[in-house]
Design a protein around this nucleic acid. Structure first.
Lengths: 249, 249
DNA sequence: CGATAATTTGAGACGTTTCAAAGCGGGTGG
DNA sequence: CCACCCGCTTTGAAACGTCTCAAATTATCG
C-alpha cells in the first residue's frame, strides 16, 4: 500500500469525465456550486479519513474515487468505487463524522461542497431530491450485489461481477461504448475491492483471459470480449442489473 | 430454506418494539400514516421479492426484517437486518423495481406506506428529511462494516461483529439493557448474514461460548458476557461504531 | 539505465465447505 | 399423553479453494 498524502495539487493525466454535463437536470445554481468548489487531486490522495470530522459533500467531476475501510491490522476493503457524476455523503448516523475513507484511484477533480451550501441548494431546487434518492439507491444496489458475491460466490464470479458492474456504469456515462476500458487500480486494489489476495486476483484474471472472455493489457487495460459470458460467470442478469444500478435519466 | 408465502395474517408471538414511539420527532401526520398502513406479518413472510415492482416504503414497527439477495442457484445472502423504528426504501435506481427481497424473521408489524403518501409527508414535514438521511447513513455504515469483515476477517470476527452490532442497535432502541437477547434467526440464517455455512456458524458459536465471551441457550438466545472482548474479536472500536450506526437523537 | 513497484508463477499451509450421521426438541395426530 | 416426525443443532472426516511465502519476470519512473 502506498502512503498517500492529502494532496490538492494538479496531477499528471488527462481527466476522465465531462464535469457538469454529468449531473442530470443541472440547474444553474448547481453548476455554479460545482464550479466554485472544484478542486483537483492527484492519484493516491486521501480526501477524507474514516471517523474524521466531515462537513462536506463530494461530487466527482472526473476520475475515479474509492471508498474504503481499514481493519485494525491495516488491511483495506474497498467498499465502493465512485465514477464521474456520482455523489458521496460521508456523514454517518451521528451526522458529523465520516463512515468511510475517501481516496482517489487516479487524478480526479472533485467539488467539495460544504453541507450548508448543499442544503440550501436542496431546499431551493426540488429536483435535487430525486437525483440524491437515485444516487443512494444505485449505491445501495451495487453494494448489495457485491455483498452477495462476497458472501457466496467464487473468486471468478467476484472478479467477473466487478468487471461487469464497472463496464455497465462506464457505458451509462458514455465513457466506454465498447467493452474496453482502463481500470485505474492495481491488482492489489482490485483484490481489496472483491475480497481476494492480489495473487489470487492475478490467477483469476489470467484464467478469464485464457478462456477468452476478457483480455488484459498493460496495467489493467481490460477488454471484455463476451459480456454475456462474463455476466454468466458473475451470475448476473444484465438487464436486471442495469435497472438496479443505472439512473433512469 | 422454508417456503414462506406472502402472509398478512396475525401471527403467534408477542410483538417486539413499541410502534410510533420509535420514530423520533414524530409528527401527528406520520403517526396517522403509520397507523393507517399498519399490518402484521407472520414469521417467514416475504413482503417483497427482488426486482418486483415496488411502490411503497416499509416502516418497521415491531419484530425483525431481513433484506436479502439470492444467487442464481438459490443461495441467499442477508444484506441487512432491520429492527423496529427503521425504514426500508426498496426502490432501485430505475425507481420502480425493488433492489432487495424483504422478509420477516419473526412476527412483525410493518407500515407499508405508498410512495405518494410518503412524499406528501416529506414535503410537509421538513424534519422527515433528517430522519431519512440519518437512517440511510446508518444503513450504509453498518453494511460497509459488514463488507469489511466479509472481505478480510475470519469466521470468528464476522460472528463477533454481527453479535456486537445487533447488541448495540438493540440497546439503542431500549430492547436490551443488558447484553442478553434472542436472535430470531437459525444458524443457517446467521450464516447467510455473515457469509458462512451453517455448520461453521455452529462451530464458531461454540468456540466463542467455550472461551466464555458469550453463551447461547435454546434456539439462539445470546448472552454476551464480555462485550469488550467480543468487540476485540470483531476488531471494532465500540464508541466509533456507535457513532457510525446509531442515530444521534 | 538502475531502482522500485507491480505482475506472474509455484508449492505448501490453512480455513472453510461439504457430506454424513447422530442428538435434541417441539409440534401434531393418533 | 405418548410416539412420531421434521427441522435445527452438533460433531467428525475429507475435499476444496484461497492465502501465504518466496522467487522470477516485467513494467515504470526518475
Amino acid at each position: 500500500m502506498p502512503g498517500p498524502q492529502v494532496e490538492t495539487t494538479e496531477g499528471s493525466k488527462a481527466p476522465v469525465g465531462k464535469g457538469d454535463f454529468l449531473f442530470p437536470g443541472t440547474s444553474p445554481d448547481l453548476r455554479q456550486l460545482l464550479k466554485t468548489h472544484h478542486r483537483g487531486f492527484r492519484a493516491g490522495s486521501i480526501l477524507k479519513v474514516e471517523a474524521e470530522e466531515s462537513g462536506a459533500i463530494y461530487c466527482l467531476l472526473s476520475g475515479w474515487l474509492a471508498l474504503s475501510k481499514l481493519t485494525e491490522d491495516g488491511e483495506r476493503q474497498i467498499i465502493d468505487v465512485i465514477l464521474p457524476g456520482e455523489i458521496v455523503h460521508p456523514s454517518s448516523a451521528d451526522s458529523h463524522t465520516s463512515w468511510i475513507q475517501i481516496e482517489t484511484l487516479c487524478y480526479a477533480t472533485v467539488a467539495v461542497v460544504p453541507q450548508a451550501a448543499w442544503a440550501r441548494l436542496e431546499a431551493a431546487d426540488p429536483c435535487m431530491r430525486r437525483i440524491e434518492a437515485v444516487t443512494i439507491a444505485a449505491s445501495l444496489s451495487r453494494m448489495s450485489e457485491r455483498m452477495l458475491r462476497l458472501g457466496k460466490g467464487t473468486a471468478e464470479s467476484r472478479i467477473a461481477y466487478a468487471l461487469t458492474e464497472i463496464c455497465i456504469r462506464l457505458k451509462a456515462i458514455g465513457e466506454s461504448d465498447v467493452c474496453d476500458y482502463h481500470l485505474p487500480m492495481t491488482q492489489q486494489d482490485l483484490g481489496d475491492f472483491v475480497g481476494l489476495s492480489s495473487v489470487h486476483v492475478c490467477r483469476t484474471l489470467r484464467r478469464l483471459s485464457r478462456s477468452g472472455v476478457i483480455s488484459t493489457a498493460d496495467h489493467m487495460d481490460i477488454t471484455i470480449h463476451d459480456l454475456d459470458r462474463l455476466a454468466g460467470i458473475a451470475g448476473v442478469d444484465l438487464d436486471r442489473l442495469r435497472a438496479e444500478i443505472i439512473s433512469a435519466r
